[in-house]
Design a protein around this nucleic acid. Sequence first.
DNA 1: GTCTATAACTCGATAGAC
DNA 2: GTCTATCGAGTTATAGAC
Lengths: 203, 203
Amino acid sequence: MVNTAATSASDRILEAAKRVFLLKGMAGARMQDIADEAGMNKAMLHYYFRNKEKLFDVIFREASSQFFPRIQSILDSELSLEEKIRKFCSEYIDLCLKNPYLPLFLLNEVNSKPEGFIKKLWKNKDSPFSQFSKAIAAASPGLHIQPGQAAHIFINMLSMCIFPCIARPIWMAANDMDESQFMRFMEQRKTEVPRFIIASITK
Amino acid sequence: MVNTAATSASDRILEAAKRVFLLKGMAGARMQDIADEAGMNKAMLHYYFRNKEKLFDVIFREASSQFFPRIQSILDSELSLEEKIRKFCSEYIDLCLKNPYLPLFLLNEVNSKPEGFIKKLWKNKDSPFSQFSKAIAAASPGLHIQPGQAAHIFINMLSMCIFPCIARPIWMAANDMDESQFMRFMEQRKTEVPRFIIASITK
DNA sequence: GTCTATAACTCGATAGAC
DNA sequence: GTCTATCGAGTTATAGAC
């Protein structure tokens, strides 16, 4: 009744938790930080999410689903291979620029999970990765793609889109870049990376 | 006198600290874990390194100097550009395979350092990154390298060598790989990545 | 130098008033 | 639902015997 504010308490907690967890990770985050960020006190976090781990799980799942499934929809589209590559690079570079802490957060937390856990991210379905690899292989007639190379091409694409964003502080410092120079550099990459990939394939 | 063992106490602490810090990061590591790993008790860690932060700093510096300066020596060599690329990829893939937690550890901790800190890694010298970029630009006569592309080529190379190692758990799960299959995949990349880069340049 | 014991503190979690 | 107060476990760090 009273809470006609833009967001409910639990939503404000989730937003705050996302900021703090993505920045500091599970181990580095403090419930107090999240409470401060959300403008309320610790007891509220426990009232809504019971404990830190459950709150973290919600954030982790949300972050995962924001990052991984996009691959699928691009894959399923009716575009040509070259168009798929262009679209993929453009979307993933944008995603990383708009969520600077997302990739490193996911890589970290996946690394600290027990073995079997990761496979559950894709349940019984094929992983988007292996599907994309197959799509590249299938689209290869006329191109110079050797069997077994599809996987390399795919992870090359992922690497060139994502890595510069996670190495951003080092890259900026090493090249004396400011914020806007880095942004321009990454904008260039939306065309440079596809050009690079396609050149190496069609040579 | 007595300690004719292979390693001194402080060395054993450093080795243990490296394992624990690289695996769990500053926030996730426990002094008790390090003590256990080193086969002694917590008081010893404080005796030799005063506190957790100072111990961490030693590890961080060592890890940094293990990772970054190699670029320089390859750059300074008298090899052709193509040979430099091949050597760089081969060495960095090996480095990452032999130190699986090193790249993610550095990326994480660099991200959580205050702004100005990073530049101090290269003191007053040019960063190896910008130097390598210049070398690629200088070696470009006869190749199809546009001005401003050198930086892209260089970070492409870094990305394709390092990223697959930090995304290893996801990549293995997504492709149903076991340990030895992944190792073979990365061995292939020592030639695949240079081939990929050179193809895109000489097209 | 090395160990045990413990102080000092941080942090997640709960109890209970409103 | 929201807040204050506090408990109790876990951690860093130190004191002090040997």
